[in-house]
Every structure is written in C-alpha cells, then in structure tokens.
Computed example of a mutant assay.
Amino acid sequence: MSSESAARGSTSGTPRGVPVVNVANALTVSRLAMVPFFLFALFWDGGQHAAWRWVAAAIFVVASITDRVDGELARRRGLVTDFGKIADPIADKALTGSALIGLSLLGDLPWWVTLVIIARELAVTGLRFWVIRHGVIPASRGGKLKTALQAVAIGLYLVPLGDAAELLRWTAMGAAVLATVVTGLDYVVRAVRLRAMGKRAMHS
C-alpha cells in the first residue's frame, strides 16, 4: 500500500459534504481500469513484442503516477471518502500484483519474488483489519521507499532492454524485495504495539 493510501486511511469516516464522485476517486478508478489494458499490452505476442512491452511500461508508469496524485488530492483538498479508502488500496494491489504475476507467467521474473511481495501486501492488509479498532498506523519513510523501489524495479522488468540491463533489474528488484520484507516486519511490530496500547486504553 502506498503512502497516499495510508493518508486516506488516516481519516475516520467520510466528512459530510464530500461527494463520492470527485477527481481523487476518479483517478483511483482510472488506475483500476488501466489494469486490463496493461495486461493486454504485456501479453501481446507472448510478451515478446518490443513495442507492446514499451506500451505496457508506459501504462504502468501513468497508473503509478495516478497512485501518487489521487492521494495528494484527497488529503489536500479534503476529498477523503469511504469509497476512496477501499478502492485506493485495491487499485494499488491490482496494478502491482498483475504486473508481478504477469512477469512471472512470462518467465521474466522468478515466482518467489512475486510470492514474497504479494504475501507481504496481503499480510499487511490483514494486520490493518486486526488493529482497525485501535487506530491507523501512519505511513513510514520505509513504506514510501518500498513503494518507489517496487515501481522502479517492475518498470525495469517491463521495458525490453535486453540482457545488458539484467544486473540493473536484479539490483533494483533485490532492493525492492529487501525493503518489502523489512517494512513488513516493521509494520508487524507497530501493529502489535498499537493493539496493545489500544487494549490498555480500553481497560483503563
């Protein structure tokens, strides 16, 4: 989940007067709508067509940009809605998950990388529901770094740069996986602490 998603989640309830149909939510929905087009471009000609790989990479970049913009708009313009809180992380995971799974299906990315990243995201989602009664854990700098590294690494695997870029791809993805695991463990620690504090507050 991105820092923008967390920013949305930090607001409890939808403020009165905020319409569900707004520019932030429209960007979120557009990101979700880009996923099938991204997959179409990625799998065209068995993923071996260079031009279509560039198209897939371009769609991924544009969708990733909307991930940053929609959250900023929601927070700065007071456009946070319950719909946005739900749809934003779904769109994030749909984009990243489809890219990782697609690359693994094409044999470009080892499955263990895809499984580690997706498992982490699902686990963190479960933790959020586990502590939701006690509060929301704010996004950390590590979380922002993790999101950026994942986007860069996936982008490098999408573009047809050939074997010359293999070391660069592996370096970027290795950094992304490391950040994914470390921030995941950090989230577990913070979730346990928040739940413990919440229980103490309830009994005090």
Score class of each variant (00 low, 15 high):
Lys146His: 11
Ala165Arg: 04
Ala148His: 09
Gln150Leu: 12
Lys144Ser: 11
Trp170Pro: 00
Thr171Leu: 15
Asp186Lys: 08
Leu185Arg: 04
Val192Thr: 08
Gly174His: 09
Ala176Glu: 10
Val152Arg: 03
Ala164Gly: 12
Leu161Phe: 13
Leu156Trp: 01
Met173Asp: 10
Leu178Pro: 05
Val177Gly: 12
Thr183Glu: 15
Gly162Pro: 13
Gly162Phe: 15
Val182Lys: 00
Gln150Ile: 12
Leu161Tyr: 06
Lys144Phe: 13
Thr147Glu: 08
Arg193Gln: 10
Gly143Lys: 05
Ala191Arg: 01
Ala175Tyr: 10
Gly143Cys: 11
Lys144Asn: 12
Asp163Ala: 15
Leu156Ile: 00
Gly155Lys: 10
Arg169Phe: 01
Ala175Asn: 06
Thr183Val: 09
Arg193Ala: 14
Lys146Val: 14
Ala179Ser: 09
Ala151Gln: 08
Gly155Ala: 13
Gly162Ala: 11
Tyr157Pro: 01
Ala148Cys: 05
Thr171Trp: 10
Asp186Val: 14
Ala179Met: 07
Val177Thr: 07
Arg193Glu: 05
Arg190His: 13
Thr180Pro: 04
Leu178Gly: 04
Leu168Ile: 13
Ala191Met: 11
Val181Leu: 14
Ala153Leu: 01
Thr147Phe: 13
Gly155Thr: 09
Ala172Ser: 00
Asp186Cys: 09
Thr183Asn: 11
Ala151Tyr: 05
Val181Pro: 11
Val159His: 12
Thr171His: 07
Leu145Cys: 01
Thr147Ala: 15
Arg169Tyr: 03
Val177Asn: 10
Trp170Thr: 03
Ala151Asp: 04
Trp170Cys: 01
Leu168Tyr: 08
Gly174Tyr: 05
Trp170Tyr: 07
Gly155Ile: 07
Gly162Arg: 09
Trp170Lys: 04
Thr183Pro: 05
Gly174Lys: 02
Thr147His: 12
Val181Lys: 08
Thr183Phe: 07
Val181Tyr: 11
Ala148Val: 15
Thr183Tyr: 02
Asp186Trp: 09
Ala153Tyr: 00
Val152Asp: 05
Leu185Lys: 03
Tyr187Cys: 04
Ala148Glu: 06
Arg193Ile: 10
Ala165Val: 09
Lys146Cys: 11
Leu185Met: 06
Gly174Gln: 08
Ala164Ile: 10
Leu161His: 03
Ala175Leu: 15
Leu156Glu: 01
Ala153Trp: 02
Ala165Met: 12
Gly184Phe: 01
Ala151His: 00
Ala176Phe: 14
Leu167Arg: 15
Pro160Arg: 08
Leu145Arg: 03
Lys144His: 06
Ala164Arg: 07
Ala165Ser: 13
Tyr157Thr: 06
Thr147Ser: 14
Val182Ser: 06
